[in-house]
Structure formats: structure tokens, C-alpha cells
Design a protein around this nucleic acid. Structure first.
Length: 255
DNA sequence: ATGGTTGTGTTACAA
């Protein structure tokens, strides 16, 4: 089965790109971020017409995540546990197609230092706690999404331009490494040891110059990693009209 | 040169 993650930067603006990608690329499961829509306005019918079930967790104007799947979606959990006062829609966990998946829109954290960076680090600590809980079950699961963390300098076209950014701070990178050290695998790195990007800024001709960064990740539990047969980046959507600034990252799992 | 662009039930703010 093929599972992909894509930060679409607005479902309303991106619906044509999303539907053509679902048709052409045909992932079994799609983890979406930054839908920027309340659930009532989400264009469910257009997606269901393509053969997908979907769960949305949205809010007005900002954030918002969704899980699309060709299989039924069960055991849905909206929101990341650990802070009942957190109202930002950044996490859905569910069971579909025989595997547990989460769609993650991790806080950007800029500017740093500051309240937003503190929120990012606290959110990552909650994600680590949730990963520890999931690992106790010793089952296959995927934590995929926009992590807003550039893991290492190889994942950035110009590390010197990003030294003060929340995406490269030691505190951000250390927390992502903690997740790896718990036993999760960065799937894209299993199949690609070269520089490979998932995001290009809209500004300064970043796409045309290939000035990208890698911030969209698919972390696999040991039982999921055992089934990994491939991983990659689908660059095609980034080159089309009215694109998202992110492009899909995908993995293939043996049945 | 602190620039540039895109999205949102926008017109400020997040990315």
C-alpha cells in the first residue's frame, strides 16, 4: 500500500491540484495538512467521488488536518493528547487499511525565541509522549506530516540562511532525534541518502532555483519499517499552476 | 536592500 503526506496550504485554493493528484498518483492513504478550513466547508463530496473516505479536523483560517483513505477509517482521535487547553487543529490519529496513521502539522515556531517557539517545543514533547505510548503496542504505525523541522544541514539548500530559524534550532532537531532514538525510522532517508527536498518558498524563485528544504517526514514504527519497500518525493505537483509550497512525500509498504 | 509571495469566510497575520 502507498501512504503519502502533503501540506496543501488551503483546501479551497488547492482542490483542483488535490483532485488531479488523487486521480493520477492514487495513494491508498493521504495525510493532509494546512487545510485552512472549518469542517463544515470542507469539500467532502469531490473527494468521496474519487473513492476516498475522509476525516477532517479543521479550524477557521489556520492549520487544519485531514486523513483520506480508500479503506474505512476507524478509531479516530482528533487532536494531540497532553494539553486540553490547546485548540489548534494539528493532529489526527486513526486506523485504516490495516495500519495506524497520524497526520501531523507541527507548529512552525517562528519567531524564535518567543511564545511560538515555546509552543512548538511543548507540542513536540507531547508528540514524543504519544509516540512512546504507541510504541508500547509493538504494532505498525506511521506518523506523517509537516514536522517543520529541517533534520540536518543536508536537508537545506543554504544552512547559513536558516541558522536563526525555528526549523533548524538545536532544540527542534534534538526532539526529532529523540523520536528517531525511540525506534522510529525516517522513511525517506532509508531510500535516499542524497539531498532531497519537500518544500520550496513561494518567494525569490525558490522552486526555479531548487532552493528547497526537507521538512515533511514519514516516521515509521519498527513493525512498519519491516514492511517498507520504497519512499520518495513526488515533485510534479510543485511545478503546476497555483501549487502548494509543499509537495507530497510517499512510502510503499508490503501488504 | 530586512526586500519577495501566497493563503485565509482576509484586509492582519501566519508561513
Amino acid at each position: 500500500m502507498r501512504i503519502a503526506t502533503w501540506n496543501i496550504n488551503g483546501i479551497k485554493a488547492r482542490l483542483p491540484r488535490l483532485t488531479e493528484w488523487l486521480t493520477d498518483f492514487s495513494p491508498d492513504v493521504a495525510l493532509l495538512q494546512e487545510v485552512k478550513s472549518v469542517d463544515e466547508n470542507f469539500p467532502r463530496q469531490e473527494i468521496e467521488d474519487l473513492g476516498y473516505n475522509l476525516i477532517t479536523h479543521g479550524q477557521k483560517s489556520y492549520n487544519g488536518v485531514a486523513i483520506l483513505s480508500k479503506s474505512p477509517i476507524d478509531d479516530v482521535m482528533l487532536g494531540l493528547p497532553g494539553d486540553e487547553t490547546d485548540e489548534q487543529a494539528r493532529y489526527i490519529e486513526a486506523f485504516t487499511g490495516g495500519i495506524r496513521v497520524a497526520t501531523i502539522y507541527l507548529p512552525n515556531g517562528n519567531p524564535q525565541p518567543g511564545e511560538k517557539f515555546d509552543y512548538k517545543l511543548a507540542w513536540m514533547d507531547r508528540l514524543i509522549t504519544r509516540a512512546e505510548q504507541l510504541l508500547e503496542w509493538e504494532e505498525a504505525f506511521i506518523l506523517g506530516g509537516d514536522y517543520n523541522v529541517i533534520p540536518a544541514d543536508i536537508d537545506c539548500y543554504d544552512p547559513s540562511a536558516w541558522v536563526d530559524d525555528a526549523l533548524t534550532q538545536p532544540e527542534s532537531r534534538a526532539r526529532l532525534r529523540t523520536m528517531i532514538n525511540l525506534g522510529l525510522t525516517d522513511a525517506l532517508r532509508v531510500f535516499h541518502d542524497e539531498t532531497i527536498y519537500s518544500y520550496w518558498d513561494y518567494q525569490r524563485g525558490a522552486w526555479q532555483k531548487d532552493n528547497g528544504i526537507r521538512i515533511d517526514h514519514m516516521l515509521c514504527s519498527p513493525q512498519a519499517t519491516d514492511r517498507l519497500t520504497g519512499a520518495g518525493v513526488d515533485r510534479a505537483p510543485r511545478g503546476k499552476e497555483k501549487p502548494s509550497d509543499h509537495t507530497p512525500v510517499w512510502i510503499d509498504l508490503a501488504d
